[in-house]
Design a protein around this nucleic acid. Structure first.
Length: 647
DNA sequence: GCAAGGTC
């Protein structure tokens, strides 16, 4: 019997073919430069038994959907017609050779086995493969291999425990695809058509709406206004210092700070009147600093922007040149491969010699990809500078994952001074372990404390009443933005960087160098891309979560890029917000709702048809309301884009 | 010219 196996990408096809064939495999080129067909024999056991196998792949989605040609024009039929315009599925020109290959190979096969990634998109790609194969063999039988990594034993077991393609997941994805197309095209055409006539800077812009790009813009605008509308608040505190054994101990006040001066004075004077302080408790307990979790793509992007000063897209491009394999493999063998390195080889050797410890398990498991880790040793000379730094991070992180947590002894000292409680916290690092290789983390932010005994009294060296002002939050860094997108389900780990790029291309946001600048410096430094000046409206102003003490504002390092909205970005977000619909296009809720609906389809609680009908009606209503209140959007553009002193 | 999602 002949079987056709199809993976989602070349690397998986190659790896699976390698494992199933046991090494005896013939490779054939296809008309597509990326796609190879492998042929070999394999015993699937049970129903299929011994088979002649052809293993090949696609490269991501094979098809895309589009509106029929009558809907090409941006103004007629009017954009709202796109909510129910007919849609056709077609194969992009550069994918035709792949589809043809599948149809050709299917002709000789009785069974088709889908080896796409085991996530929702993978299930949909699987269905696209089935459709293409049936063009060549309409009666081909379809099975699916369920696997989460390409470790040999795991692949073999997946091949012998075939399941069926999950239609519900396929439906969930096709629902998402259709909604994104209809909503994105309708709003983009409408916004562009109706705001370009304002002329000037707006004349040549494409004003796009997308279910991911708009919430992403919303995050940037929201933070901008939190900074802009921030009102500093004065606070007062009590600082207690004591010198002992040549060490300076800083006791922090249990109340931290008060926003009322008189109250603080009264409390402070009570402390001074008491003269002596009494140690109420001394507690020592073992503590540890956890080693990092295995590396996810999102974490890699965050680390790349934060520690390595790359942007997320650069990091992804570089990281894709390595591959990602799973923990099912022999991790110690991977550690062993790192022993030749000048920088971390010795550390790797110590792990091999017995210090190895199984990595922690994080809560994210997409069942499709294992954590990122180095699969081979790359000498510094074979990588360019960016690649080298990223590779170094991946290796150090991996070695850290495979070593022990750092071990320390924590000391807590509680003290009573007048009516007030104070405490000091210290740590002695006993074993550095992973910290020796993971140079991106430190554990020296807490000092070693001198000896104190419970019940003892003493006169504190210094007791001061201090005052300070709260400071605004910082603008969003790329790492912040990725974290927000991740937390709100905006985009996937592979697309987040693209959405961030998109809102820059659209001139909705700009990046600026944050080197300890004030908001005013920021505006002056970037008049070219028109970051906003003089905004009003949103933001929480006084207080709220974004508030920080001035004492901790030292985190503004130079050279970090932060995101600020342009006038245009502010105008669009405020314009929609001021229409005050029950549904906000600028916030992540709609995307979250879409995610929930997809999940409901997967769980059989609703269907593709129901969700499409509901969501299209919902968005059409918002669209109609937007048309009716276009004046609000236009007014916002006039206010922010045109009413600028320098224009 | 327009979305978001795969991947090369």
């Amino acid at each position: 019997m002949r079987v056709l196996c199809v993976a989602e990408k070349p690397s998986i096809s190659k790896a699976v073919a390698g494992h199933l064939s046991g090494g005896s495999v013939q490779t054939h080129n296809t008309r597509n430069q990326y796609i190879k067909n492998y042929s070999f024999d394999f015993d699937f056991g049970q129903s299929l038994g011994q088979c002649a196998v052809t293993m090949t792949c696609v490269a991501g989605h094979l098809t895309h959907i589009e509106f029929t040609s009558e809907y090409k024009n941006w103004s007629y039929p009017p954009p709202d017609s796109l909510f129910n315009a007919p849609i056709v599925t077609s194969i992009h020109d550069d994918k035709k050779s792949m589809a043809k290959n599948l149809a050709d190979q299917a002709k000789h096969a009785r069974v088709l086995i889908i080896w796409t990634d085991c996530d929702r998109e993978g299930e949909h790609i699987g269905q696209e493969i089935v459709d293409a194969a049936r063009k060549g063999n309409s009666s081909i039988q379809v099975k699916r291999a369920r696997f989460s990594n390409v470790e040999r034993a795991h692949v073999l077991s997946a091949a012998r425990r075939l399941v069926n393609l999950d239609e519900k997941q396929v439906d969930a994805v096709s629902t998402r695809i259709e909604l994104d197309l209809r909503i994105g095209y309708a709003f983009t055409r409408f916004m562009t058509n109706s705001l370009r006539p304002l002329g000037g800077a707006m004349e040549n812009l494409t004003l796009s709406y997308g279910s991911c790009q708009f919430p992403t813009l919303g995050f940037v605008v929201d933070r901008y206004f939190r900074v802009k509308n921030f009102v500093p608040e004065q606070f007062w505190s009590i600082k207690l210092l004591h010198n002992r054994d040549g060490k300076k101990v800083n006791f922090s006040w249990a109340r931290s700070r008060l926003f009322d001066r008189m109250t603080t004075i009264i409390i402070y004077e009570r402390c001074l009147a008491a003269k002596t302080a009494k140690i109420t408790n001394v507690q020592e307990k073992p503590t540890r600093k956890f080693k990092p979790l295995p590396l996810t793509t999102v974490e890699l992007q965050k680390a790349a922007t934060r520690l390595l000063r790359m942007n997320g897209q650069q990091a992804m491009t570089i990281a894709e040149e390595t591959d990602r394999f799973d923990k099912g493999m022999n991790l110690k063998a991977l550690v062993q491969k790192q022993t030749p390195d000048q920088r971390w080889g010795q550390f790797a050797q110590s792990l091999v010699n017995g210090a190895f410890s199984q990595p922690r398990e994080g809560r994210h498991d997409d069942k499709a990809h294992p954590p990122i880790h180095p699969i081979t040793y790359a000498a510094p000379s074979v990588l360019n500078s960016d690649e080298g730094r990223l590779y170094e991070y991946v290796v150090r992180r991996f070695l850290a994952c495979c070593s022990e947590d750092a071990i320390g002894m924590a000391t807590n000292i509680d003290l009573q001074y007048g009516s007030e409680a104070f405490s000091a916290h210290g740590v002695i690092v006993l074993e550095r372990n992973y910290l020796d290789v993971f140079v991106y983390e430190k554990w020296d932010n807490t000092a070693e404390l001198p000896k104190f005994t419970r019940g003892e009294t003493f006169q504190p060296t210094e007791a001061l009443m201090t005052e300070g002002k709260t400071t605004p939050p910082d603008y969003l860094t790329e790492a912040d933005l990725i974290a927000l997108m991740d937390a709100n389900g905006i985009g996937t780990d592979a697309t987040m960087a693209e959405h961030i790029q998109k809102i820059q291309d659209r001139e909705y946001v700009a990046t600026i160098d944050r080197g300890g600048q004030t908001a005013e410096d920021v505006d002056d430094a970037h008049t070219e891309a028109q970051p906003t000046r003089g905004g009003r409206g949103r933001g929480r102003g006084r207080g709220g979560r974004g508030r920080r003490d001035s004492g901790t504002s030292g985190g503004r390092r130079g050279g970090i890029r932060v995101f600020v909205p342009t006038q245009l970005g502010v105008a669009l977000i405020l314009g929609y917000d001021r229409m005050d619909f029950d549904i906000s296009l600028s916030k992540p809720f709609l995307r979250k709702e879409m995610e929930l609906k997809m999940r409901a389809i997967c769980e059989g609680q609703t269907t593709r048809e129901v969700v499409l009908r509901e969501s299209i009606n919902q968005y059409r209503r918002v669209f109609m309301q937007t048309q009716e209140r276009l004046d609000v959007l236009r007014a916002a553009c006039r206010e922010f884009v045109f009413a600028q002193p320098h224009r």
